[in-house]
C-alpha cells in the first residue's frame, strides 16, 4: 500500500442537509437533518482512508456524496481535479466511471433475477465504450477469476452463492470499469466471522495488484485499522480526528476517539478486569438539532464553557502530529490489545 503524494480525491467542506418538511398541501421546511456538515480530506493514490463512526454519524451519506449519488448542499468533491459534486448528465457519467461502490449487504445489492454475468457486466451497458460487445463475456470471466470465483459460474444466479461469494460478485462489478477509487461501505459487516478475513485479504490483494485507492467506511475498528493507511473519525456529521492509523489508534487526542477505542471488546480475556473503559453516558444528540459549539460536548467529560460557544476546527494542535477537533486535546493512550 504505497501511497504516492498526489491526491486522487479531494473533498472540501462537504455539506449535506436533508430538509425536514411539514404540511400536506403547502410543504414548508421546518428544519434540516445535518447528515454531513463540513467534511474535508484528501485521498492519495494507492492509499486506504478508513472512516469510522457510529450509526447516524453521516458516514454512509458521505459515501453517497463521494459517488455523486446525492447532490451536496455545499462543498466540492474532485476526482483527478474534476468536480463530481455539481456535475450532471454526460459529464457526471464520465467522472463516475472512475469511482465505484462496494455495498454492505450482498443479499439485497444484487438483482436476484439477473445472472452473475449480467450483474458483473451491467456497467458495460451503461458505458458501452468501455468494452466492445463481443469482448464482454471474456472480460466478465476475467473479473470473476480476479475476485476468486469460478469463471464457469457466469450463468448462475445470486441465490446459488454464499454471502462471501456474493460480496465477491459485488466487488467484481465494482472493478468492471477499471476505476481508480473504490468506496467500500461496510463491506464485511454482513458476513460471518470466518468469511470476513477472506474478503479483507481479497480487497488488500486487489489494491496491491491494481493500484486502487480505497475509502473504507466501517464501524469495526480492528478491521479498519488492519486495512487503512489513514483513519478519520466521524461524529454527528463532522470529522473529529484525522491521522495515520498508528496516530489514531496509538495516540488518540480527541475524547470521542478515546471513548470509541476503549469501548471495543478485546478478544483476549487476560487482564480484562484491569482494562480502562470510558463508558459514554446517553446517546448521540439528533443531527437535526446538534449542540452548539463542539458537537461532542454534551457527552464529554472535559467540556467547559468555551466548548458550547466555539466550534473547534479540525486542525493540527500542540503536542500532536495529526489533526483533531477539540479545544482541549490531550494524547491519551487507551491500552488496547486489538
Amino acid at each position: 500500500m504505497a501511497a504516492t503524494g498526489d491526491a486522487i480525491l479531494e473533498v472540501r467542506d462537504l455539506v449535506k442537509h436533508f430538509p425536514l418538511t411539514q404540511g400536506v398541501l403547502v410543504r414548508k421546511q421546518i428544519g434540516a437533518i445535518k447528515a454531513v456538515d463540513g467534511v474535508s480530506f484528501d485521498l492519495r493514490r494507492g492509499e486506504t482512508l478508513g472512516i469510522v463512526g457510529e450509526s447516524g454519524c453521516g458516514k454512509s451519506t458521505l459515501a453517497k456524496l463521494l459517488m455523486g449519488l446525492e447532490r451536496p448542499t455545499r462543498g466540492s468533491v474532485r476526482i483527478n481535479g474534476r468536480e463530481i459534486a455539481g456535475a450532471r448528465g454526460a459529464e457526471l457519467k464520465q467522472v463516475r466511471r472512475n469511482i465505484q461502490l462496494v455495498m454492505q449487504d450482498p443479499y439485497t445489492s444484487l438483482n436476484p433475477r439477473m445472472t452473475v454475468g449480467d450483474i458483473v457486466g451491467e456497467p458495460y451497458e451503461i458505458h458501452p465504450e468501455a468494452a466492445p460487445r463481443g469482448d464482454r463475456r471474456r472480460r466478465v470471466q476475467a473479473l470473476l477469476e480476479l475476485v476468486g470465483l469460478n469463471p464457469d459460474h457466469i450463468n448462475r444466479y445470486p441465490h446459488q452463492f454464499s454471502g462471501g461469494q456474493r460480496q465477491r460478485i459485488g466487488i467484481a462489478r465494482g472493478l468492471a470499469l477499471q476505476p481508480e477509487i473504490i468506496v467500500c461501505d461496510e463491506p464485511v459487516s454482513a458476513l460471518d466471522v470466518s468469511i470476513q478475513a477472506q474478503v479483507i485479504n481479497l480487497l488488500a490483494r486487489l489494491q496491491r495488484d491494481l493500484g486502487l485507492s480505497y475509502v473504507f467506511i466501517a464501524h469495526d475498528l480492528s478491521v479498519v485499522r488492519h486495512i487503512s493507511d489513514r483513519v478519520g473519525v466521524m461524529y454527528l456529521g463532522k470529522l473529529v480526528e484525522l491521522g495515520r492509523d498508528s496516530e489514531i489508534y496509538g495516540q488518540p487526542a480527541h475524547p470521542y476517539t478515546q471513548a470509541l477505542l476503549s469501548a471495543v471488546p478485546v478478544p483476549n480475556p487476560e487482564g480484562r478486569a484491569r482494562r480502562e473503559r470510558i463508558v459514554l453516558q446517553g446517546d448521540p444528540p439528533s443531527p437535526a438539532d446538534p449542540p452548539s459549539g463542539c458537537r461532542f460536548r454534551t457527552r464529554c467529560w472535559k467540556a467547559q464553557d468555551v466548548c458550547a460557544q466555539q466550534e473547534p476546527p479540525l486542525q493540527l494542535r500542540p503536542g500532536t502530529w495529526h489533526e483533531s477537533a477539540c479545544h482541549f486535546p490531550q494524547v491519551h493512550q487507551v491500552i488496547r490489545a486489538f
Partner: peptide, 14 residues
Amino acid sequence: SIPRVDRKGRELYA
C-alpha cells in the same frame, strides 16, 4: 483470523 496490530500489512489468516 482476527485483525491485530502485529498482523497489520500482512495477509490475515482466513
